[in-house]
Design a protein around this nucleic acid. Structure first.
Length: 447
RNA sequence: GUGAUUGUAGCUCAGUUGGUUAGAGCGCUGGAUUGUGGUUCCAGAGGUCGCGGGUUCAAAUCCCGUCUUUCACCCCA
């Protein structure tokens, strides 16, 4: 048979994994610096945990896992006979692949609430799965890097999380714009326009603003049956670029005012920090995941068109659905796969990554090969990533291999070198070479 | 999920209105070069033209299905 892998999944070769790890390591380092601790959760969750958390669209994109054993015996016969997949599903699948890391985290917090110290800050770097139609930068299996904190309402957390965004993208050299908004402000808009019941319709339309323009948003809202007077009011508020005019525009909406106050509080914390990237209030930022209730964030790369490379926000009651009330959480997510594409396109990866081979030893014959093997061990003891070509093959062959591995240095070991105890160190980039003893070589390579 | 799009050597791609033995560059293997890769020269290997079916005397080329890629919508990282 011809080997293949499922749609929207990918293999990663050594060079790619090396670069991906560079991204993961950078993110991880910053997470840890801000006090977040790692956890991991299973790939598989109970479908009951996942369904209903991501809206109707999200439910459709959940990967369901067929029950083991003779599952048809327990299947809903009527639904099966009628060909009703939706009805049949609960009787044949009770597990699914995780869709994000936030919902499993909420589940984790509830299950382990007695073992955790609150506020609890955790980070998690694991793959998630969505049964979406793949495109560039959109896969069915992709990695998320999440940091969330639960058990604190302080807006300081929002400020810190945006700092993390800023710091990570500065370290990676990716210029970004970090958009900030507050779900309560969006709700305030709906209330001020007298269409609180059509909050979601309004939000979905607004979210498309940069794609379809203000006229498109108007049409979309009118199509959903929002009266044109209300649409006018919404449009008026959408034009606002700062918080202060909103206070009068949504003076009657208690929720809206609270949202404004929250963003102001966020700003008081955040602007104590010298951000390297643009952090902007964007009233049109909506975000689809409907569990968000407070501040929301989204990160866009400035020089590459690829959709958002990070997103997050505050969710007041995500643990509530699992039976733990009154625990508020806020978190952010990095889309590692999209960040990779951005960095690839902008050629931002360092030439030499830390976990690559530093030196290849080349021996000329059987006698020097065992001698070289001893040298190899000393290099490794000194913490140098080193490799000896496994047999004393023709020099040309070994050198070609060194080239293919793009090793910066090669150590040549022949009879002369072995007798004198001085090995030939060759710089592969310049072609220069000279004789040194092993200690000098170790010193050079450790530099 | 809806509508398009893509697939030819390891990679990037040619391949005429359907016509005999499907090509190039790069890469790969061997040699020129018995202690030196990345340059040069010579030689060589490598393809069920995504897969399955159909039309035709004849299909990489046309038709249908399917898988994959990419794109728009939807949604999102």
């Amino acid at each position: 048979m011809k080997p293949s892998i499922p749609k929207g999944t990918r293999d990663f070769g050594p060079a790619v994994v090396n670069r991906r790890n560079y991204i993961f390591d950078t993110i991880r380092t910053v997470f840890v610096k801000y006090g977040y601790q790692a956890i991991e959760t299973p790939v598989l969750e109970n479908l009951a945990t996942l369904t209903g958390k991501y809206g109707e669209e999200g439910d459709k994109l959940l990967f369901k896992v067929l029950n083991n054993g003779d599952f048809l015996q327990k299947a809903n016969r009527e639904a099966l006979a009628a060909g009703d997949s939706a009805e049949l599903l609960p009787s044949i699948a009770d597990k699914g692949l995780r869709y994000d890391l936030t919902v499993p985290f909420a589940r984790f917090v509830v299950m382990h609430q007695n073992e955790l110290a609150f506020p609890f800050k955790r980070y998690q770097i694991q793959p998630v799965w969505r049964a979406d139609r793949p495109q560039k930068g959109r896969y069915r299996e992709f990695y998320q890097c999440d940091a969330d904190v639960v058990g604190t309402n302080s807006l300081m957390n929002e400020a810190e999380l945006v700092q993390i965004y800023d710091e990570v993208f500065q370290k990676l050299g990716v210029e970004v714009e970090i958009k900030v908004n507050n779900r309560k402000i969006l709700y305030g808009m709906a209330e001020a326009a007298g269409i609180a019941s059509q909050f979601m319709d309004m939000t979905i339309a607004i979210d498309k603003l940069d794609k379809i323009g203000i006229e498109g948003v108007r049409r979309e809202m009118e199509r959903k049956g929002i009266p044109s007077a209300a649409v006018d009011r919404v449009e008026e508020m959408l034009a606002v670029k700062t918080l202060s005019p909103l206070k009068t525009l949504m003076a009657d909406s208690e929720t809206g005012l609270r949202g404004i106050a929250e963003l102001e509080e966020f700003h008081r914390y955040f602007y104590t920090y010298p951000a390297g990237n643009a952090v902007v209030f964007d009233i049109t930022l909506a975000r689809g995941l409907n569990y968000y209730t407070g501040c929301i964030f989204e990160v866009k790369a400035k020089k590459v068109e690829i959709g958002s490379i990070g997103g997050g926000g505050r969710y007041d009651d995500l643990t509530g659905v699992f039976g733990l009330k009154g625990v508020s959480g806020v978190g952010i997510s990095f889309g590692a796969d999209r960040i990779y594409l951005v960095m690839e396109e902008l050629e931002l990866f360092p030439d030499r990554l830390t976990d690559s081979l530093q030196v290849l030893l080349v021996a000329f014959d059987v006698a020097t090969h065992t001698y070289a093997f001893r040298c190899l061990q000393q290099l490794r003891s000194a913490g140098i990533n080193a490799e000896l070509y496994p047999e004393p093959a023709k020099l040309k062959k070994q050198m070609k291999y060194a080239n293919a591995r793009s090793v910066p240095y090669v150590v040549l070991i022949g009879e002369d070198e072995m007798k004198r105890g001085e090995l030939t160190l060759k710089n592969m980039a310049t072609g220069a070479q000279d004789q040194r003893d092993l200690a000098a070589i170790i010193a050079e390579l450790s530099a």
